[in-house]
Each structure stands twice: as structure tokens, then as C-alpha cells.
Write a protein that binds this DNA or RNA. Structure first.
Length: 204
DNA sequence: AACGTCAAACAGGGAG
DNA sequence: CTCCCTGTTTGACGTT
């Protein structure tokens, strides 16, 4: 399925678009993910599903009669979830017509389908973010290790660095650093560079 | 019973 | 104004 587009290339990770594996896999086929929730759900959802399976759209119980505006929470049936997932795989967003059609097909209100898609998108994004986070953590770990290794290497190289080459000074007849020699342009002979002249010491 | 997790539903704000 | 995103609340359910 090409429904998830990770924005990061993560070596070793198969992108959903190529693997065909969704981050969220619902109990299609295997059935091992079926929990008691799915089997013994609260009645409104089951009723809705029965209506849905009978081919008619049904308004799930909307008001408890006390004027409270919050919907009674329903759990979607297995079949409703499956169809929503299927639809989500084809498209992560729905236009109003598609929303209405899907809602009618599922026996839900358009608002419920809309909310489901919103939540589903959010969950997908969260999952992606978690994966990216894990990947970055691993990157950080390996880079830290690499950094340590390079630091050690630098220290080792510093420790084994040989002393600079020396020559015998033609003036003092003692060893001096070769870099301290300069060639006299007139006589073409090596001589020691004159030490930088210090200006007369200023006070302080 | 208390706690944790999951997902449905809501609210507010930004973009078009 | 509508749609979507994001953060939050809340109810259902599982686990300890």
C-alpha cells in the first residue's frame, strides 16, 4: 500500500510503499489480533453493524435523553473498522460525497467517518514520528561512537608524533630544528635565521 | 479496585 | 465558512 509516505530515507527499513505493509495492521486474515473488544462489543456498534450488514444506514443512538450533547461512545464493529481501513488505504482523505457514501455504507454518521479519518491520520503520523525518532536515536548512537573512535585515533597520532628533524647549526655546531635554517642569498650557505628583534621594552 | 491503553469524540486554531 | 490538524477528554476494556 502506498498510503504512508515516510519523509526520511531510513536504510534497512522497508518503506510501506514498497513493502505493502501498513504500520497499522488490523486483524485481516490472521485473526490473531482479534480481542474480546471485537467479539463482545457494546451493543450500539453491534446493532449498527447488523443494520449495516442488512444494508441500511442507521443512526447510532445519539442522545441519552438528558439533553447532554456528548455522543455515547461507540466502538466500531470489526467489519466497520475493516471497511474504514480499506477505504483509508485507498485515500487518506475523503471528499464530502465519499464521506456520505461511506457513512451510509457503514451505518454511521458522516461526522463519525470524518472523526475516524482524522484520528486515523493522527495515529499514522504519530507512528511515523516514533519510527523517525527511533531511527534518529540509532543515528545519534552510531555517530557518537564514531566520534569517540576518531578522538581516540587523534590522541594516538598525537602521542606517536616524531620530533621535528634537526641539523647541526653551522654557527653553534649544535643541533637545531631544520626549520630554523635559512639560506643566505648572497653566499648560498645555510645560516640560522636571526631571532626577531624585540623593540626596546616599553614600560609595564 | 486501580491503573494503563486504545480509540471515539470534542474543541480550538490555522489555512484555503 | 469549511476542512484539517493537534491536543485533550472520556468511555470501554484489559491487566495486575
Amino acid at each position: 500500500m502506498a498510503d504512508l509516505q515516510l519523509t526520511m530515507a531510513m536504510p534497512g527499513w522497508s518503506s510501506p510503499s514498497s513493502s505493502g505493509i501498513d504500520l497499522f495492521h488490523f486483524e485481516e486474515g490472521g485473526g490473531c489480533n482479534v480481542s474480546l473488544k471485537d467479539l463482545d462489543m457494546n451493543r450500539p456498534a453491534r446493532e449498527a453493524e447488523e443494520e449495516f450488514q442488512a444494508g441500511s444506514a442507521e443512526e447510532v443512538e445519539e442522545d441519552d435523553g438528558d439533553g447532554g450533547h456528548r455522543q455515547k461512545k461507540l466502538r466500531l464493529s470489526k467489519e466497520q473498522s475493516r471497511l474504514l481501513e480499506e477505504s483509508f488505504r485507498q485515500n487518506h482523505t475523503l471528499n464530502p460525497k465519499q464521506k456520505e457514501a461511506l457513512a451510509a455504507k457503514l451505518g454511521l454518521r458522516a461526522r463519525q467517518v470524518e472523526v475516524w479519518f482524522q484520528n486515523r491520520r493522527a495515529r499514522t503520523k504519530l507512528k511515523q514520528t516514533e519510527m523517525e525518532c527511533e531511527y534518529l536515536k540509532r543515528c545519534f548512537g552510531s555517530l557518537t561512537e564514531e566520534n569517540r573512535r576518531l578522538q581516540r585515533e587523534v590522541e594516538e597520532l598525537r602521542a606517536m608524533r616524531v620530533a621535528p628533524p634537526t641539523v647541526i647549526s653551522p654557527v653553534t655546531r649544535r643541533p637545531i630544528a631544520a626549520s630554523a635554517l635559512t639560506m643566505c642569498p648572497r653566499c648560498q650557505r645555510f645560516t640560522t635565521a636571526a631571532p626577531p628583534r624585540r623593540p626596546p621594552s616599553a614600560a609595564t
